[in-house]
């Protein structure tokens, strides 16, 4: 850390909140201006379209989807033909294991290492914002991307569902009927929970990103880590450690569709994500504030 830099962070003068906001705004802008980000969001938006069309074609003759074997394919897919809102849940269940976290891994892995590899990191550090604040802004903009990615899937699924399938009263998985309005509220809550489920992997990606000067390496490591952990989560022999793997409770968002809502695993999930965010966020902070930036 340079002396000038340290003098600013150590100083008693707090920058005005507006200045912090502008750093955050410029980071969010630089994330969403990238063609890569737009392409990722486009792929995510295409998933519900594909699922919706596939279900529509398969059930054209009046058949039901996933009938053979009783429940193949992603969760909730058998209800999609009866209520388009279920396409939201199916799409989120289909994208949450890999598509969504992969996109987060790309954005989070790129956040610091990408700046370092393109040689712009040192210019960012020259600005009197301090490394801690820069890191916070980077993490916050990644979280904004988490929310945006989830909402893109949700909105696209809702649009496709409304176009291709009937909407109406929603039968929750407990067999209780609720109005479409409440169903929509629950869908929004689920989108929020899914976005929060991604905060852990975002923190891991941010930490990996502070370790290297190569953006590609950081992205590949984050996505590779994600796939490894997802595979480890499948081995029954590892059930003792599985509750501590970050994807373990991801599908618990479905518990919001029970009546009454089953909170246990939802809360476990949020606690686990907070823990990952705290551990890897502080590790990223420790690494980023104490390393020499040469690029």
């Amino acid at each position: 850390m340079s002396r000038a830099d340290a003098a600013v962070t150590g100083g008693t003068r707090a920058p005005s909140p507006l200045w912090q906001l502008s750093l955050f705004r410029s980071e969010v802008g630089s994330v969403f201006r990238r063609w890569r980000t737009v392409a990722l969001l486009g792929v995510l938006a295409a998933v519900p379209v594909l699922v919706g069309i596939a279900v529509k074609i398969e059930t054209r003759g009046g058949g039901t989807v996933g009938h053979e074997g009783g429940g193949g394919g992603p969760a909730f897919i058998s209800q999609v033909t009866n209520n388009g809102l279920f396409l939201v849940f199916t799409s989120l269940a289909a994208t949450l294991p890999f598509f969504l976290p992969m996109a987060i891994g790309v954005v989070a892995g790129d956040s610091i290492a990408g700046e370092a590899s393109s040689g712009t990191l040192r210019y960012l550090l020259v600005a009197p914002a301090g490394r801690t604040r820069l890191l916070l802004a980077k993490y916050a903009s990644t979280l904004v991307f988490c929310l945006a990615a989830t909402l893109v899937v949700t909105v696209s699924a809702l649009a496709v569902g409304a176009l291709l399938f009937p909407l109406g009263e929603v039968t929750l998985i407990s067999g209780t009927n609720v109005s479409f309005g409440e169903g929509l509220l629950r869908a929004l809550a689920i989108a929020g929970v899914v976005a929060l489920s991604l905060t852990g992997v975002a923190a891991v990606g941010l930490f990996v990103s502070t370790l290297t000067n190569s953006g590609i390496a950081a992205m590949a490591t984050t996505v590779g880590l994600l796939i490894t952990v997802q595979i480890l989560d499948q081995f029954p022999q590892l059930h003792a450690v599985q509750p501590y793997l970050f994807p373990h409770y991801w599908l618990s968002f479905a518990d919001l569709l029970r009546e009454p809502v089953y909170w246990d695993q939802l809360l476990d999930n949020l606690r686990l994500q907070a823990l990952y965010a705290a551990v890897f966020g502080s590790a990223a902070w420790a690494r980023f504030t104490s390393r020499d930036v040469t690029a």
């Binding site: 009783g70 429940g71 599908l251």
Partner: peptide
């Protein structure tokens, strides 16, 4: 009585003389 399953639920509901079993996974 409901059995909580991952992303699905099996419910047995008795209300008076009506007994329903609903499996949300297969929608049956």
């Amino acid at each position: 009585v409901s059995i909580v399953e991952p992303a699905a639920e099996y419910s047995l509901i008795r209300n008076g003389d009506q007994v329903w079993a609903y499996d949300s996974g297969s929608n049956t």
